[in-house]
């Protein structure tokens, strides 16, 4: 009894909890360290840029995302989203949102490139996350064939095989990918904005992402050999075209052929 009691007393009642907490901290921290080393580059942004970003954040973003990025009822926490996410959301004009809706709409960016960079630096300075990709991954000189296959398997079900976009549930949609900057395509894959899933580096390696961008830039730069694409929307656009313009022209011609001269 006494031995048992003394044995029990030897350990603090919270020792088990503390042990688990320490264990979790090591594994979790180790994992975070490991996974973030792949993408998070050393923060080279100067302190002045970060301070600049902090001011911009407080003035434009904090009302929804919280002064410490912790999030509020109106917007999610931005801890751990990384510079890539900020650069994508702000750089494409999706943030700040014009209004709440099924999803944030793309519009003319509200911030200059420098301001965007400052915001990204500030958010990245508070917690690690995916960084803005290196230019070498965005040159569009990868393997278009591999990129096309990856795109068909991973992206086409929402974005359409030619990147023309598609519908999602409840008014949400996958936007068209034509005219989207390579850096934004890459950041979207890494951060999974809105309804898009994250394609992390184990899922699609940085080279794979580069190939996907190569393919998208290939079809953007090489217009369809068959002539005007009709939005690359597939049979619906073709059917609409044949009824309105094809048959429309032919019926107009029949009317003209059988018209009596005045």
């Amino acid at each position: 009894m006494a031995r048992k009691g003394s044995a029990a007393n030897r350990r603090h009642p919270l020792a088990t909890v503390a042990l688990i907490a320490i264990g979790l901290m090591f594994t979790g921290g180790g994992y975070a360290l490991f996974s973030s080393t792949a993408t998070a580059e050393t923060n080279t942004a100067s302190q002045t840029t970060i301070d600049e970003g902090k001011k911009l954040f407080a003035a434009n973003c904090a009302s929804c995302h919280g002064l410490d990025l912790q999030g509020t009822g109106a917007g999610p926490s931005l801890l751990g989203v990384g510079a890539a996410s900020v650069d994508f959301q702000v750089g494409t004009g999706r943030m700040p949102m014009a209004m709440q809706g099924p999803q944030a709409m793309q519009k003319t960016p509200q911030f200059t490139a420098d301001d965007t960079k400052a915001l990204a630096a500030y958010v990245a300075s508070l917690s690690p996350g995916p960084a803005v990709p290196d230019d070498s991954l965005l040159d569009g000189k990868g393997d278009a064939s591999n990129g096309a296959e990856l795109f068909r398997i991973n992206c086409a079900m929402c974005h359409n095989v030619a990147g023309a976009g598609g519908a999602l549930t409840e008014g949400k949609f996958a936007p068209a990918l034509t005219g989207v900057a390579a850096v934004h395509i890459y950041e979207a894959m890494v951060t999974g904005p809105q309804n898009m899933p994250v394609f992390n580096d184990k899922n699609l390696s940085p080279e794979d992402k580069r190939d996907v961008i190569t393919y998208l830039k290939y079809i953007e730069k090489n217009p369809s050999p068959g002539g005007y694409e009709l939005g690359s929307l597939g049979p619906v656009a073709e059917g609409l075209f044949v009824w309105i313009f094809g048959l429309g022209a032919i019926v107009a011609l029949t009317v003209w052929l059988t018209a009596k001269s005045n």
């Binding site: 096309a148 296959e149 068909r152 398997i153 086409a156 079900m157 929402c158 974005h159 359409n160 095989v161 030619a162 023309a164 976009g165 598609g166 519908a167 996958a174 079809i219 369809s224 050999p225 068959g226 002539g227 005007y228 694409e229 009709l230 690359s232 929307l233 597939g234 049979p235 619906v236 073709e238 075209f241």
Partner: peptide
């Protein structure tokens, strides 16, 4: 006017389905 650009669709594979 392009019609049925099969080069966009790629070969048939039971796993991918394109939007639209």
């Amino acid at each position: 006017f392009t019609i049925n650009p099969i080069w966009n669709y790629g070969p048939y594979d039971p796993s991918p389905v394109s939007a639209g």
